[in-house]
């Protein structure tokens, strides 16, 4: 079922009019990013890559370097990557295009960060790769629970069992989680793994 507030993803396409490219990807999205960069002879030389995941510094980073990308950085986790990305966005100039490929949590956080620099969410080119696990914000305490694969999940912050609504905020880069047993405490439907 399509979710009206959830972005529709397609394959990354290089913006040949841009002077500079910023590519954010995780290990799932690295191949998609490389495929895109290979569609041009000149793009890689004007590209900053931030690749994320355990061991990405040894594996995927080398592949981007050998393609000729002029700045290649690696971070072990999304959380760690956001500090670097913040600086990359802060120093970006007009005529730069942002691309992101990976799980939805990475896409959401990249778009949300870019938005703080005045970049419209729709103008960030996005390709979903890998797991469909969700990033869920608890509507009660506002804490975010990562890597959610089930329709019911316990909030990692306040402990309320949350039902994951099919409602996605690009600003927050997250789905909404709402108490699953508010009407009858402790009564929950069977927990099913639905976002894999």
């Amino acid at each position: 079922m399509s979710i009206k507030s959830r972005p529709r993803y397609s394959e990354l396409e290089l913006d040949i009019k841009s002077k500079r490219h910023i590519v954010v990807c995780d290990k799932n999205g690295a191949a998609a990013a490389q495929r895109m960069l290979r569609t041009s002879n000149v793009a890689a030389a004007n590209t900053t890559v931030l690749v994320i995941g355990p061991g990405a510094d040894k594996e995927e980073a080398g592949a981007f370097e050998s393609m000729g990308c002029d700045v290649v950085m690696a971070s072990p986790t999304i959380e760690a990557a956001m500090f670097r990305l913040d600086q990359v966005f802060a120093k970006a100039t007009m005529g730069t295009r942002i691309y992101v490929a990976g799980i939805e949590g990475l896409i959401g956080q990249t778009v949300a960060l870019a938005q703080r620099y005045g970049v419209k969410p729709m103008s960030v080119r996005q390709q979903h790769c890998g797991s469909l696990k969700r990033r869920v914000q608890c509507v009660h305490c506002k804490g975010v629970t990562e890597d959610v694969t089930t329709q019911i999940v316990t909030c990692a912050h306040c402990g309320v069992p949350l039902f994951v609504r099919d409602h996605f905020s690009r600003r927050l880069g997250a789905f909404m989680g709402v108490s699953a047993d508010a009407e009858e405490a402790g009564v929950l439907p069977p927990i099913e793994e639905v976002f894999r």
Partner: peptide
């Protein structure tokens, strides 16, 4: 519905959870 969650959404995103009407 939550203003805090929906802030910044467009008309379709904002109404996403409404059934049948889309």
């Amino acid at each position: 519905w939550s203003m805090d969650f929906d802030l910044g959404m467009n008309f379709f995103e904002w109404h996403a959870p409404v059934p049948l009407a889309h």
